[in-house]
Simulated scan of single mutants.
Amino acid sequence: MTPNNSRRMSCAVALLTLAAAAEAHTGHGTHSLAQGLLHPLGLDHLLVMLAVGLWSLRGLGAQRAWQGPAVFLLSLVLGAALGLQGLMLPQLEALLALTVLMLGAMLMQPDRALPPALGLGLVASAALLHGMAHGAEAPATAWGAYALGFVCSTAVLHLGGLGLGLVLQRGFAAHSRSVLRVLGAAMGAAGLYLVGQLAA
């Protein structure tokens, strides 16, 4: 792949990501498995979960890449349980938007620039916030199907991020780092956009 083509593809991905930035959440219900499956498709959730898979591969290496999604899922469930009990942080929507910015910045770092423990800690903190949002929106009773849905959907998105990372490594070779930086910058811009929408 030529440098010009790599730049064109990177710009296209960035524009598509920003064009999708409309709402942080999809506005669906919270009472069924199907609704739980759809919930992580809100922009902030979607970008963060894909980014966790991407960062885990680049930041932890192929042998440890499973740790990022595993930490995220565990913290997500913990956060959902806290949210279900009514524990909420002020300005949670703004904090969720900032997690998009944070994960974008993590993607822009050189390979393994962050110590693994720090990177996983940041992943866990993002997951805890997203879990609180899920739990706060869940019904007070019979929320098991909804919870199973968003956990399964989250896991699939993590796998998608890992798969995208492998495609970048194998298909774009020397240009994969540049593409990932562009993706990180686009995520950061999307996070700023979401913060701006909340402030408007």
Score class of each variant (00 low, 15 high):
Thr2Asn: 05
Asn4Thr: 03
Asn5Leu: 13
Ser6Met: 07
Ser6Val: 15
Arg8Trp: 00
Met9Gly: 11
Ser10Glu: 05
Cys11Thr: 15
Leu18Val: 00
Ala20Ser: 14
Ala21Asp: 08
Ala22Lys: 13
Glu23His: 15
Ala24Asp: 08
Gly27Trp: 09
Thr30Lys: 06
Ala34Arg: 11
Gln35Phe: 01
Pro40Arg: 11
Gly42Asp: 00
Leu43Asp: 11
Leu47Ala: 13
Val48Cys: 01
Leu50Arg: 09
Val52Asn: 00
Leu54Lys: 07
Trp55Pro: 10
Ser56Arg: 14
Gly59Glu: 10
Leu60Ser: 13
Ala65Arg: 15
Gln67His: 06
Phe72Pro: 05
Phe72Tyr: 10
Leu78Asn: 06
Gly79Trp: 02
Ala81Thr: 07
Gly83Gln: 09
Leu84Gly: 14
Leu87Pro: 02
Glu93Gly: 07
Glu93Ile: 01
Thr99Arg: 00
Leu101Trp: 07
Leu101Arg: 08
Met102Asn: 09
Ala105Thr: 02
Leu107Phe: 03
Pro115Trp: 07
Pro115Met: 00
Gly119Phe: 10
Leu128Asn: 12
His130Trp: 00
Ala136Pro: 04
Glu137Asp: 15
Trp143Val: 04
Gly144Lys: 08
Tyr146Val: 00
Ala147Phe: 04
Val151His: 02
Gly165His: 01
Leu166Pro: 05
Leu168Cys: 09
Arg170Gly: 10
His175Arg: 07
Ser176Tyr: 06
Arg177Ile: 09
Ser178Ala: 14
Ser178Met: 12
Leu180Ile: 00
Leu183Ile: 14
Ala186Gln: 08
Tyr193Cys: 13
Tyr193Trp: 06
Leu194Glu: 15
Val195Cys: 15
Val195Tyr: 11
Leu198Pro: 00
Leu198Thr: 02
Leu198Val: 04
Ala200Cys: 07
